[in-house]
Design a protein around this nucleic acid. Sequence first.
DNA 1: ACTATGCCCTGGGTGC
DNA 2: TGCACCCAGGGCATAG
Length: 273
Amino acid sequence: MPELPEVETIRRDLTPLLVGRRVTRVRIHAGGERLAITDPPRVFERRLQGRGVVGIDRQGKYLLLRLDDGWTWVIHLRMTGSIVHVPAEAPLGRFERARIDLDDGSTLRFNDLRKFGTWHLVEDAAEAMPHSGPDALSEAFTPEWLLSRLRGRSTSVKAVLLDQSVCAGVGNIYADEACWIASVDPRTEASRIGPVRARRLHAAVLETLGASLANRGSSFSDYRDGLGAAGLHHVRVHVFRREGQACERCGGIILKARVAGRGTHFCPRCQRK
DNA sequence: ACTATGCCCTGGGTGC
DNA sequence: TGCACCCAGGGCATAG
């Protein structure tokens, strides 16, 4: 499941390969009908054809391909999507949903087992992500901002961390990891978090995202970088999918519970409510 | 305004 | 071996 570190790794991989290139042909395969949100598949293909890529940005988990007509091609990978740069002759993948041919003879393949990924072609990227707040790595994401969004809420800390209007880019893996680093029980009612723990949580979010980014992301299942390789960070996590194992900080047994509708991993001994 | 739930989708795992 | 079920979860719509 690509979250901020994974999407940023892809952005960095694809930037030198795509910027300055022109799209010569796009094919959304049968079965990929739901991929293009803003237009029917054939219209989407035609509108991208001939467009040059002038830059790639990222906002939260969204990849923003800036086009030479001023529009933006907004890509979201959801859980199982990947976008990989390969030679034209590379075989059709089992879960390939679309193929983009570039003017240097190379191609991009959009793979997505579960077909949750989305493409938008929009004049203003905000149209495609109306609920997105400050990116977790932006200067707008501050301890004060996080505290203001925790205040007065009866929901769990985990639910607030997963809220893309609070810290865009944090998903299930890094919400659990941040809670562990900050020694906060993810089930804690948000309103119980004061300035001290809000500051710790804020620092923990930056720490876990930074560590994963340095390892090119986590590949628990389908995530692949822009060149098709797995990330390296999944073996370095503290709690995510480590239920039943010993907490490396206190020796407690890591539990798994359902919090905010998501599988949630934490150490009940050293993570406090 | 806030909160919880269900939907989309398919492969992999489990239990009988 | 086969089959039915459950689980994974990001973002959105909907209900309460």
